Computed example of a mutant assay.
Amino acid sequence: MLNKEDLIWDKVSIARHKDRPNARFYIENILDEFIELHGDRAFRDDKAIVGGIGKINDYNVTVIGINKGKNTKENIDSNFGMVHPEGYKKALRLMKQAEKFKRPVICFVDTPGAFCGIGAEERGQGHAIAQNLMEMSNLKTPIMSIIIGEGGSGGALALAVADKVYMMENSIYSILSPEGFASILWKDVTKAKKAACAMKITSKDLKEFSIIDDIIKEPENGAHENPEDAAKNIKEYILKDLAELINVDCNELLNDRYDKFRNMGK
């Protein structure tokens, strides 16, 4: 029988599974129509962010996802889901466009964290993330965000300041990776299992702390076992949210979003 550390590490492993459905899969299998848009209009197109406009049933939406690849080439192209500043700027451009045309925003989050290379720092990684946090808190259109795999640090939070925040059952959401936590606290990366247990990073933990709104069920043994069913479960939550949020007065929406994050964890 697995102990608590092993059970939690099992969820970490499933969240990182190489066959786990990525953001592009969910976009293609949840939306009826999708037109991808590219670039931040300043530096380049960051392939770690996939985004554009689409349609789900009768709703026109903007969709933004942090995307990991399904093989080595795709992972290199998408930088293993580690977003550069231009990726967050692309996401913000799409969100501001959604606000202008009154389209709800749907975000899929799956990243070990924002890219921390020299180039990213030179181009203002911290500022890009901070600007997204500020702009999303005041975006005058409904936002929902779903953690579909890893939700690492500010790199994940930059797309998770939303009216509704959900986690897939076997996803994780944390300030940094368990390996990073272990190396900082105990100077020993081999204690990652212990760190994961202490950090309270599972969907169950975060629901109990009121950090997220709800947990989206996955097929048995993880979303990678039946990606289509996982997509169907997410679509049900999205449609429920859209039906509710589009009818909320804009000022009330912003006030509720502000209160949600001010009171988070209380």
Rank of each mutant, 00 (worst) to 15 (best):
G265A: 10
N67H: 13
L253F: 06
L159F: 01
E179V: 04
E33P: 08
H17M: 12
V161A: 00
E150Y: 00
N233V: 10
N79Y: 06
S153T: 00
D214W: 03
C250D: 00
A156H: 07
D32P: 04
I246G: 04
L2Q: 13
M264C: 01
M167H: 04
M199Y: 10
S137Y: 00
I201A: 07
V12K: 08
L94S: 04
E74P: 01
D10A: 11
N3P: 04
M134V: 10
I106F: 02
K200S: 06
F101R: 08
I147N: 06
S174Y: 01
N3T: 07
P219G: 05
I14S: 14
G117W: 10
R20W: 06
S153Y: 07
H127F: 12
N138S: 06
T62Q: 01
Y88C: 09
V165P: 00
A128I: 08
A160M: 08
N22P: 03
R93W: 05
H224Q: 15
K100H: 01
K55S: 08
G117A: 12
A128R: 03
R257S: 09
G52M: 02
G113M: 04
L37F: 14
N71E: 09
P112H: 07
F209C: 05
M144R: 03
K204Q: 15
R41C: 10
L206E: 04
K193Q: 10
R44D: 11
A231M: 08
V189S: 07
A130Q: 13
N221E: 13
I147W: 02
D259K: 15
E228S: 12
T202H: 03
H84V: 11
